[in-house]
Computed example of a mutant assay.
Amino acid sequence: MRTISQIAKLTGVSIRTLQYYDEIGLLKPSEVTLSGYRLYDDDALERLQQILFFKEMDFKLREIKEFVEEPGFDKIQAYKKQKKLLCLKRSRLDKLIGLLEKLEKGEQCMSFKEFDLSEYIGALEQFKKEKTEEVIKYWGSVDKFNEFIQKVKDDQETLLPIAVKQFGSVEKYTEAMKYNLEHFQELMEQIEEIGEQKDDILKKNDDLYLRLTSDLTRDTTSKEIQDIIQEMMDLTEETSIGIDMGTGYWDMVIESYAGETGRKVMDEKYGAGASEFIAKALHYYIHKQEL
């Protein structure tokens, strides 16, 4: 058995913090003497170590308490997951240090890949806890949702530049995603309603593209063409159910027409040169105020 002062000296955790952990039920002493002294055995020390690992990954004390008190809590599996998360954190910190070293040398480095989606991932974890029924309804199981969260973590380097490109910053992307999670049930119900009109929406969309590309010799900046683009925008707004697509969304759509896959699909469906024509018409509509 060790006294609270010995535990504090061994771990670097203050006596007051250990007392607070006792007060909130996070880490109870193994024994309290008749004189009121707290004593801790090896099991308690091991639990404190587990708590400190969670704290290192920025979990709140309330969340940590839920984890360690969950029925069937497997400390070995927890160690494995914590190790993986800490490795990811170390990798992120190494990248941030590398970026700072470049900036310190005076190099111009406008890079965003070193930042992560931790706040968004945290929102997903919170959503899982608070909306478990919705998670199971739309993902099939909590395990499948956990797989989705893990995929977000694993694909951060791919997602980050896309998020910045579409929304302007990681913060704005996270804000938009958190809004979607907060209104998830409402949005899913609207998506289901729109799904029932899918065939009608697809036909309207195809009709607009056919009208737009019926004569590829027309001026893409003409009122005739821009009016059709406006109709396309209106249809998109009607079916987007208020989801924030980001200020850079349409530029990404325009770029997709220049890609090999987009160009091939659109040219095969609407005629040779259709992809470039649509891209030019959209670009003028989106950026005409800048001209």
Results as ranks from 00 to 15, higher is better:
residue 23 E to G: 08
residue 23 E to H: 09
residue 23 E to A: 11
residue 24 I to S: 04
residue 24 I to E: 04
residue 24 I to N: 04
residue 24 I to A: 04
residue 24 I to G: 04
residue 25 G to I: 15
residue 25 G to W: 14
residue 25 G to E: 14
residue 25 G to M: 15
residue 25 G to S: 15
residue 26 L to C: 05
residue 26 L to K: 06
residue 26 L to E: 04
residue 27 L to C: 04
residue 27 L to P: 00
residue 27 L to E: 01
residue 27 L to R: 03
residue 27 L to G: 02
residue 27 L to S: 02
residue 27 L to K: 05
residue 28 K to I: 01
residue 28 K to N: 06
residue 28 K to A: 05
residue 28 K to S: 05
residue 28 K to T: 01
residue 28 K to M: 03
residue 28 K to G: 00
residue 28 K to D: 00
residue 29 P to V: 00
residue 29 P to T: 05
residue 29 P to G: 02
residue 29 P to F: 01
residue 29 P to M: 00
residue 29 P to E: 00
residue 30 S to N: 08
residue 30 S to T: 08
residue 30 S to G: 13
residue 30 S to A: 12
residue 30 S to M: 11
residue 30 S to Q: 08
residue 30 S to I: 07
residue 30 S to W: 06
residue 31 E to W: 07
residue 31 E to P: 00
residue 31 E to M: 08
residue 32 V to A: 02
residue 32 V to G: 01
residue 32 V to K: 06
residue 32 V to F: 05
residue 32 V to L: 05
residue 32 V to S: 01
residue 32 V to Q: 03
residue 33 T to R: 09
residue 33 T to N: 05
residue 33 T to G: 11
residue 33 T to K: 10
residue 33 T to M: 07
residue 33 T to W: 04
residue 33 T to L: 09
residue 33 T to Y: 03
residue 33 T to P: 06
residue 33 T to H: 11
residue 34 L to H: 12
residue 34 L to K: 08
residue 34 L to E: 14
residue 34 L to Y: 12
residue 34 L to T: 11
residue 34 L to R: 13
residue 35 S to E: 14
residue 35 S to W: 12
residue 35 S to T: 14
residue 35 S to R: 15
residue 36 G to R: 09
residue 37 Y to M: 12
residue 37 Y to Q: 13
residue 37 Y to F: 15
residue 37 Y to K: 13
residue 38 R to E: 00
residue 38 R to A: 03
residue 39 L to Y: 10
residue 39 L to I: 05
residue 39 L to A: 05
residue 39 L to G: 01
residue 40 Y to H: 00
residue 40 Y to M: 00
residue 40 Y to D: 01
residue 41 D to T: 02
residue 41 D to F: 04
residue 41 D to G: 02
residue 41 D to N: 11
residue 41 D to S: 01
residue 42 D to G: 08
residue 42 D to S: 10
residue 42 D to Q: 12
residue 43 D to I: 09
residue 43 D to Y: 11
residue 43 D to V: 08
residue 43 D to C: 09
residue 44 A to N: 08
residue 44 A to V: 07
residue 44 A to C: 12
residue 45 L to T: 14
residue 45 L to R: 15
residue 45 L to V: 13
residue 45 L to G: 11
residue 45 L to S: 13
residue 45 L to A: 13
residue 45 L to W: 14
residue 45 L to C: 13
residue 46 E to T: 09
residue 46 E to D: 10
residue 46 E to W: 00
residue 47 R to F: 03
residue 47 R to C: 01
residue 47 R to L: 03
residue 48 L to D: 03
residue 48 L to W: 13
residue 48 L to V: 11
residue 48 L to Q: 08
residue 48 L to P: 00
residue 48 L to T: 10
residue 49 Q to V: 15
residue 50 Q to W: 03
residue 51 I to C: 04
residue 51 I to V: 09
residue 51 I to M: 10
residue 51 I to A: 08
residue 51 I to F: 10
residue 51 I to S: 06
residue 51 I to H: 08
residue 51 I to K: 10
residue 52 L to G: 14
residue 52 L to R: 14
residue 53 F to L: 12
residue 53 F to W: 12
residue 54 F to M: 10
residue 54 F to Q: 04
residue 54 F to N: 05
residue 54 F to S: 07
residue 54 F to A: 11
